[in-house]
Design a protein around this nucleic acid. Structure first.
Lengths: 178, 178
DNA sequence: TTTTCCATGTAACTCGTTACATGATTTC
DNA sequence: GAAATCATGTAACGAGTTACATGGAAAA
């Protein structure tokens, strides 16, 4: 659903062939969307069969011929439908890392602590990456902003957790909610 | 991976049959993990074949017989392996909702605004739910804490976005990063 | 008496990834 | 001459979901 929305939205701003689309997604949206090339080609082909996009073959010099896609009226309608549905809902994220955290006490503290430190290092690296990401035009910039905002929040949380687990007064228990 | 970690970790705290596991996950971890019953049964069966757990059939009264699983030494080793890998890494979350946000300006503002308001309402509802979630024993409580922390951060972010989009001075442009 | 609970599964399907194939052309 | 770039795909696989099947017992 959201992948089609992504592709249709990109095509709405201008015709593109698959390779360019993939390039753009990989270079400029790598941190936010995870869409493999084969998947993109597959989705473009399916949207073609559904009539959401149309293609015209082009060639330039000795390059392989390429399918340039452009969005159709049906595709535009579908885009609007998908966009409305997307904007109106909130899809909560899941954190597989929390499962491990839930079993933190299954490991001796001296072994568990450095592991969480490694997690924090990985998180910090992602945050630096996100902060260095190339700026986007228009509303697409929100995506990058959100990533930074979120990763900062995550780092804050992880620091709290680590501090609480390191504190010798509490016996590795998270704060109660009563 | 993380699902196996979840199941092994639960079995580590005490033998259980599939139905009870599913019950616990659905009742007490619904907000944090999304694991369907069939998937749980399938994973239990596979872990059985892999020797990570063993099963003994029990019956009680006129009830259907049940497979009570307990973790094996191999399973414990695997649990530790999975736990270390999980704790040491950070798996970044993706936000499909951001794709829609990135195309916010494709809709007339009067139509887009209430859609985002609906998103915020959905988010608020999830937050209330998370705050009302039953408390957990030990380190598992971190999972609930994280969910609340994260949803609060998300709400803060969304409020910022909505405020910025509503503000008539800026032309629906997110803050630049220079 | 119909519904719900207990308890376990199978089969078909969707979605997406991985690995691979192709072949010309430009760059090192 | 080797490697990377351009450009598009296919085939096989894996993870997970959906829908369905079963069948006795307890509750409404």
């Amino acid at each position: 659903m959201d992948r089609e929305l992504l592709l249709l939205g990109l095509l709405r701003r201008g015709d593109m062939h698959g390779y360019r689309l993939n390039e753009f997604i990989e270079r400029d949206m790598a941190s936010c969307v995870d869409l493999k090339k084969s998947t993109a080609y597959f989705l473009l082909d399916r949207m073609l069969r559904q009539g959401w996009v149309a293609a015209s073959e082009e060639r330039e010099g000795g390059r392989p011929p390429r399918q340039v896609y452009h969005i159709t009226p049906d595709g535009e309608a579908e885009f609007q439908r998908l966009l409305r549905a997307n904007l109106a809902t909130y899809q909560p994220a899941l954190f597989p890392g929390d499962i491990g955290l839930g079993y933190y006490d299954a490991l001796p503290p001296d072994e568990a602590r450095p592991l969480l430190a490694a997690r924090r290092a990985a998180l910090t690296a992602l945050l630096d990456e996100a902060r260095a990401a190339p700026p986007h035009a228009g509303a697409l910039a929100w995506i990058v902003q959100h990533r930074v905002y979120h990763l900062e929040s995550e780092l804050g949380w992880l620091n709290e957790v680590i501090a609480a687990l390191d504190s010798p007064t509490l016996v590795n228990t998270p704060p109660t909610e009563n």
